[in-house]
Simulated assay, not measured.
Amino acid sequence: MEKFRVELIVKTPNPQQVIYAAMHQDYSEGFVYDEKDKWPSEEKCGEIIVKRLLSGDRGHYGCLEHVGIVLNCGLFPHSVMQQIRTHRVGISMDVQSGRYSGRRIVEAAKGLKDIEEVFYLRPVDYYTDRQGKTYLYSPEQRKQDLDWCLEAAKYYQKLIDQGYSEEHARGIIPFDIRQNFIISLNARSFMHILDLRSKPNAQLECQEFCQLIWPHFREWVPAIAAWYKKNRLGKGRLAP
């Protein structure tokens, strides 16, 4: 998991003011843009949002959907990408495709790239299955799994050399190939993903994903993030 990374591409620069404007327009007689020079500061808007929208579980999350952030996420296993896009989270994703991009697999087969830069395996440790049974993922077993990944990469290379298309050859590779992707979220869908995937029984790698995206959320909408951390983070509540 030490290879996982998340980098900011772009974000709404004054998100709490924008959310405030949306909220203010809901009950304002006037055209709120005309009052723009009178809007509270970004920090003050955050306080108002927490007080009027979030406190007391009012559930009025629509205003949070007017701001966006785009993150580039790297070297996560396929299972993470698959998990975080489920349950109607309200995000957009563009994922590195196995239909067009397979050179890294061939490079691993040739020894030009570390096999663990292409495929993900969990670290050696004790783990628990869904029924609560604990087991050891031993160094010996992990070595066998790495060898199997390498053999799969070599077979993939053989198919490519025989003229197979990437989308055909990818059918034989291990499930958890590492993938890079770009994800776009609004403030509500950001909390939705954190609700679903930061809780203690979520997939381990998804929890790590949440830990890496959390600092971006905290820096972007600090008042909302502070409220969220106190009231929802890691508690597995129903997503907003």
Rank of each mutant, 00 (worst) to 15 (best):
A22E: 05
I49H: 05
D34L: 15
Y27C: 09
A22K: 12
E35T: 09
K38A: 08
D26I: 09
S28H: 04
D26R: 15
V18P: 02
I69N: 11
C45Y: 04
E65K: 02
L71W: 10
C45Q: 10
I49T: 14
P40A: 03
C45R: 02
H60E: 09
F31P: 03
E43L: 02
F31R: 14
L71I: 08
K38S: 07
G46R: 13
I48D: 04
D37W: 02
A21F: 00
D34E: 06
F31H: 07
S41Y: 02
V18C: 09
Y61T: 11
I19D: 10
V32I: 10
S55I: 06
R52P: 02
G46E: 08
G30E: 07
D37K: 09
H66T: 04
I69K: 10
I49M: 11
K44G: 09
I48E: 05
K36G: 01
C63D: 15
Y61F: 04
H66R: 14
D37S: 07
E65Y: 02
V50I: 04
L71R: 04
E42L: 00
V67P: 00
P40F: 00
Q17S: 10
L64F: 05
L53D: 10
L64R: 12
Y61N: 12
H66G: 05
I69G: 09
I19C: 05
I48V: 04
I19W: 00
G56C: 03
I19H: 01
C45L: 09
F31E: 14
S55P: 01
Y27L: 13
M23E: 06
V18Y: 06
G46I: 07
A22N: 12
E35Y: 00
I19G: 05
L64G: 02
V50P: 00
I19V: 11
G30T: 12
G68P: 04
C63I: 15
V70W: 13
Y27M: 15
L64S: 08
D37A: 13
Q17M: 09
C45E: 07
A21I: 03
D34Y: 10
H66F: 07
V32Q: 05
V67K: 04
V70Y: 13
E35A: 12
S55M: 05
L71A: 13
I19K: 08
E35V: 09
I69L: 09
E35G: 08
P40K: 08
Q25D: 14
K44Q: 03
R52N: 08
Y33N: 14
D26M: 12
D26K: 14
S41R: 13
Y27D: 10
Y20Q: 13
